[in-house]
């Protein structure tokens, strides 16, 4: 394994090279007309200034708060629904068999097309975005929990029965931990999709949130605003992802560490 310090240095170097290239291209005549280039790609310093402005006057917190609230609600509702339905289907094979084609059909539908419907039903407030996020999160959690209950090792299950567990105890000590471990292992994906649902929903019609901010900037050709919004969104997602990793490490201590450390 490479030296940690060196690795960090190289990683920072990549960012510096990209930023410098971007800066040079958008402010000098080295590549082409800087006016044209900065119209399409903005200037890194201007983007930086815009982000600083947003945080300085505090206006960004309101939008971040809205997006975070929507994503969190979508995640909680979608996960709860996924766990309950996943468990229910896994324990009732007939039910699962009957609903199988419908579940597949619903999951095959690109969820973005539902955004206008949700806006119509639930208005332009946060709930239409939450609903969009729920449709994304639900299926990920549902499939994982279903799989987790179905794929309990037969040896572990037989052993648990021989140790004297009744149905309720099997649920608590065997099925539940197995299903939840599958759910937690998809935590990154489902949290990511909760954010996607919120931002896409905002983008398609809202009055607040990061998606709204980006959409507003785009509609007046404010490319600097679009880029600033994208960077804030990226940092926000990285932060959320890092928190998820912390939670995951806490909840899945019993899991062998995988070789890849992404």
């Amino acid at each position: 394994m490479m030296n940690r310090g060196l690795l960090l240095l190289l990683q920072i170097l990549v960012a510096v090279v990209v930023l410098v290239a971007w800066h040079v291209a958008s402010t000098t005549t080295l590549i082409g007309d800087p006016k044209t280039i900065s119209f399409f790609f903005a200037e890194p310093l201007a983007v930086g200034n815009r982000i600083i402005d947003w945080f300085a006057d505090g206006s960004i917190w309101y939008h971040l708060g809205i997006t975070l609230t929507e994503a969190a609600l979508a995640f909680i509702i979608g996960s709860l629904g996924g766990v309950i339905v996943g468990f229910w289907f896994a324990r009732k094979p007939l039910l699962a068999a009957v609903f199988d084609p419908y579940v597949k059909a619903a999951n095959a539908l690109p969820r973005v097309v539902l955004a206008p419907i949700f806006a119509l039903w639930l208005g332009l407030g946060i709930w239409s975005k939450v609903a969009l996020g729920v449709t994304l999160v639900f299926f990920i959690v549902f499939f994982n929990v279903y799989q987790g209950v179905k794929e309990v090792s037969p040896a572990v299950l037989s052993n648990a029965r021989m140790l004297g567990m009744n149905g309720r105890q099997l649920l608590r000590h065997v099925y539940m931990p197995s299903a939840l471990s599958w759910m937690f292992s998809s935590l990154h994906t489902s949290v990511g999709f909760a954010v996607v649902g919120a931002v896409v929903g905002e983008y398609l019609g809202s009055a607040a949130g990061l998606g709204y901010l980006i959409h507003e900037a785009e509609s007046v050709f404010d490319v600097t605003g679009v880029f600033a919004g994208m960077f804030v969104l990226t940092f926000f997602v990285i932060l959320v992802d890092w928190l998820v990793t912390l939670v995951e490490n806490r909840l899945l201590v019993w899991r062998p560490k995988s070789a890849a450390s992404f």
């Binding site: 090792s153 040896a155 572990v156 037989s158 052993n159 648990a160 021989m162 140790l163 004297g164 567990m165 009744n166 105890q169 000590h173 065997v174 931990p177 197995s178 471990s181 019993w254 899991r255």
Partner: peptide
Amino acid sequence: GHAGYLFQQDSLMPWKTSLDNVAIGLEVA
């Protein structure tokens, strides 16, 4: 109910520590 069974495959509950795995048979009783 009179029998204890040691399986060929790994059959410990991977989400429980050794201590919890051993204690569980008493706890459920």
